[in-house]
């Protein structure tokens, strides 16, 4: 059957976009569970993508490229930490500034690569790497956040910072650690995007929107690693169907608009539906980042 073959292909195709979104979202999940929102996620992805491209093209090594992407993401995490945790600047101000700082510098860095093609993963390898990374990170974070006592430490900060610090949680160290872990996952997402999705070739703005969508995945996955992974995979599926949309839908010009905007419209709608479901079922997200 052609249809079933197509389905299998689609499921496979979805893995890479799902892993890119999922890794970025899982990093944000850690930060949000510790009671902060890093709106700068989009910028982190941009700068990591640009740095990884420039360095992997220059050195020919994907590993070194990844490390460069990690260094760039860590730089933004450090700025966030110093301004928000140490100085006490509003986290939304810094987060949004980091979006522009990260995407601005990301393009400058990416341009250093001169548009050449860098090293890349083969399509099969890329899918295997993506699947392994996503599954391993999801399970790892599940065990860490929900099953280990350090996970309780992190979550206690997201629920009640004052109580946590009275119990002896060193707020700054935990937040710094979560931001650093976020940088690692963002670098992994950006590298996967570069080596597995865009065949080692950097294009300005190619990664646009991934960070914002990942922020949405955290909400849709209800701040739980498994939920975030599932939400990311579903959106990954939408991405792999996206190119087929025009042929699937009855002819008509309006649909052309919907194709580009489909992931965003879908996520807005899903967030609205999810919030109704959460309210009906009495679920509460981490207290410190809930605003009703």
């Amino acid at each position: 059957m052609v249809a079933s073959l197509d389905l299998a292909a689609l499921l496979g195709q979805a893995v890479i976009p799902a892993a890119v979104l999922g890794l970025a979202a899982l990093g944000e999940l850690l930060v949000e569970r510790s009671g902060r929102i890093n709106l700068g996620l989009e910028g982190m992805l941009h700068i990591s993508y640009g740095a990884a491209a420039a360095v992997s093209i220059a050195t020919g090594s994907m590993a070194v490229g990844f490390l460069a992407g990690l260094a760039a993401a860590l730089l933004l995490a450090a700025i966030y930490f110093f301004t928000v945790e140490v100085l006490g600047v509003n986290q939304a101000v810094i987060g949004l500034s980091l979006v522009f700082l990260g995407s601005g510098v990301g393009v400058i860095l990416g341009n250093l690569g001169g548009g050449a093609a860098g090293p890349a993963l083969g399509i099969t390898t890329a899918r295997v790497v993506a699947a392994v990374l996503l599954v391993a990170t999801t399970l790892g974070l599940y065990l860490f956040l929900q099953r280990s006592w350090v996970g309780y430490v992190v979550r206690s900060l997201g629920e009640n910072e004052k109580a946590a610090s009275m119990m002896g949680v060193d707020v700054r160290i935990v937040r710094a650690a979560m931001l650093a872990l976020q940088a690692v996952l963002v670098a992994a997402a950006a590298s996967l995007f570069l080596y597995g999705y865009t065949s080692g070739r950097w294009t300005a703005g190619r990664i646009t929107g991934q960070g914002w969508l990942a922020l949405g995945m955290v909400i849709l996955g209800f701040w739980h690693p498994l939920g975030v992974a599932i939400a990311s995979y579903l959106l990954g599926l939408l991405y792999s169907v996206q190119s087929l949309l025009p042929s699937l839908l009855p002819p008509g010009a309006v649909y052309a608009v919907l194709v580009d905007a489909a992931p965003y419209i879908a996520v807005i709608a899903a967030m609205a539906i999810a919030s109704i479901i959460y309210r009906k079922t009495g679920h509460r997200p981490p207290a410190s980042i809930w605003q009703a």
Partner: peptide, 27 residues
């Protein structure tokens, strides 16, 4: 051949420094 995004980066850098400096005035 400086990418347009340089402007964005510069503007963001200035906001980060100004906002941080203003916050610092409280300490």
């Amino acid at each position: 051949r400086v990418p347009w995004s340089f402007a964005l980066a510069v503007q963001a850098i200035i906001v980060v420094f100004v906002v941080s400096a203003v916050t610092l005035s409280r300490y």
